[in-house]
Design a protein around this nucleic acid. Structure first.
Lengths: 134, 134
DNA sequence: GCAACCTTACCACGAAAGTGTCAAGGTTAG
DNA sequence: CTAACCTTGACACTTTCGTGGTAAGGTTGC
């Protein structure tokens, strides 16, 4: 059905064929392949490619930013670790000395590492669940 | 002794003074300032600097990745736009229905919003408070 | 007042991201 | 069969990131 070759996809999306391959290597838009290995861009991929351009331009993002967002969404433990880092200094009791606070954070740090190293998280479970619900 | 100068902070965190300024320019760790403009690193900043190093190493991230995560958390509209892009019908397993996918993305969205909302409230205030007691 | 800090503002340099182009070879449509 | 595609891989170039340095000048502690 409706699937375009890389050159046709390039023409309708505004990206160069070279960049379409680069975007694929970045894990952002992965077209299907024909039996002989040709990239086949369907409507979904074309749509994503067009909106990707707008996204980058509107917020002045780099491709690597969006690639990182993708990692954030489905890399195991990464999201939790980043989340933990942002909220790290949040819950300090006011009546402790600076030394106590330092020790407290050190402990917290170790707890964070334990979390980051944990093998599975809810996000991944949900994804696996979804994949298996065929 | 609630705060260290940049050189002292560098010694206890492992970053160079140069990098501490760079990290500040990236918006990742912003120390308070003395009346004459000196950077004052408190326990909260020191802790964030230490955990930042671990975070980068553990997940092989770049500073720009974490900086982008920060933008994602507190730049209004950015998160929604990125989220929207990922939610758009794109290359995904055909056996996942669009409804399931959307519901899944919505859940992810809420998880991320939880971080975004939690960020940048009490912590900065508390840190600045701490700084002024010098 | 002097040494040892601190500030900002540059210059430089390697690594990585982003992008074009070309080469060698396989695929496809007429 | 041929022309016009496609593939991967490599070289090259520009821009940005990450990092160190250095210069000119302000601050601090003794």
């Amino acid at each position: 059905m409706a699937s375009l070759t890389i050159q046709e996809a390039a023409e309708t999306t505004g990206w160069s064929p070279r960049m379409l391959r680069y975007i694929e290597a970045s894990g952002l838009v992965t077209p299907a392949r024909s039996a002989s290995g040709y990239r086949l861009y369907g409507p979904a991929e074309l749509q994503r490619l067009r909106t990707l351009g707008e996204l980058l331009e509107r917020f002045d993002l780099a491709l690597s930013d969006v690639a990182f967002a993708a990692r954030l969404a489905d890399s195991d433990g990464l999201f939790e670790a980043v989340q933990e880092w942002f909220s790290a200094p949040a819950s300090r009791p006011e009546d402790v000395s600076a030394d106590d606070w330092l020790r407290f954070e050190q402990d917290k740090h170790e707890r964070l590492l334990a979390v980051a190293g944990r093998r599975s998280n809810e996000l991944e479970l949900m994804e696996n669940e979804l994949m298996e619900s065929r």
